[in-house]
Simulated assay, not measured.
Amino acid sequence: MTPPASFSIRHATPDDLEGIRVIYNHAVVHTTAIWNDVQVDLENRRQWYEARMARGFPVLVAILDNAVVGYAAYGDWRAFDGFRHSVENSVYVAPGVQGRGIGEALLRALVACAHERGIHRMIAAIASENAISIALHAKVGFRTAGVFSEAGTKFGRWLDLTFMELAVGQGKPA
């Protein structure tokens, strides 16, 4: 058996947005990882990327064979001043390369970025049926903070939402 090829992780550039868009749209169409029903175009991903860059938030990509095979980012958890030290993360890996450690490497790199930037808490909102994502976050040190029953819908059914949190930094509130 041939071992899987190695991948690298780096900060995304605008040239990576098409690869990010493809992964995002696959999740929209085929999973409950994203609770949107409509696929996005490249302009949508460009605006998403620019909004994160304007806030100083990282967007990371995993590269395998010169292609984007995963991405991770964080953004504001809630849009009120009192929540400015907490962020919500997202991690997505392309089908066909899942199970190779790409998601874990992306999440660990994202947590490291948050630590460097003085973030206090990282929060993950995960469809409760997504046992793989919950296990991944637990492996990196996140703990379950609560579950909301029937918090949203996708594919014509109610979905529960699990919140997980990670203490990233110990900074003083400002």
Rank of each mutant, 00 (worst) to 15 (best):
L42A: 05
L42N: 04
M53H: 07
D16K: 03
Y71P: 12
R121Y: 04
Q98E: 14
M1E: 08
S8Y: 04
V140S: 13
M164G: 06
T13W: 03
V68R: 00
Y49D: 03
I20L: 14
D41C: 13
V111Y: 08
S90I: 07
A5R: 13
F57V: 01
H30C: 05
V38A: 13
S128Y: 02
V61N: 11
R10V: 03
I23T: 04
R100F: 07
R157Q: 11
D76V: 04
E116I: 04
V97Q: 06
E116M: 13
I23M: 09
L17P: 05
I134H: 01
R84P: 01
T13I: 09
L161C: 13
W35R: 11
T144E: 15
L161W: 00
E116Q: 15
N130Q: 05
E18H: 12
V28G: 07
P4Y: 07
L136P: 01
F80E: 08
A109D: 09
A105S: 15
N66E: 15
G56D: 01
R117Q: 15
G96C: 09
H137S: 10
E129A: 14
G99A: 11
V29K: 09
D76A: 06
V93K: 08
N44V: 13
G70E: 09
A167Y: 02
T153L: 00
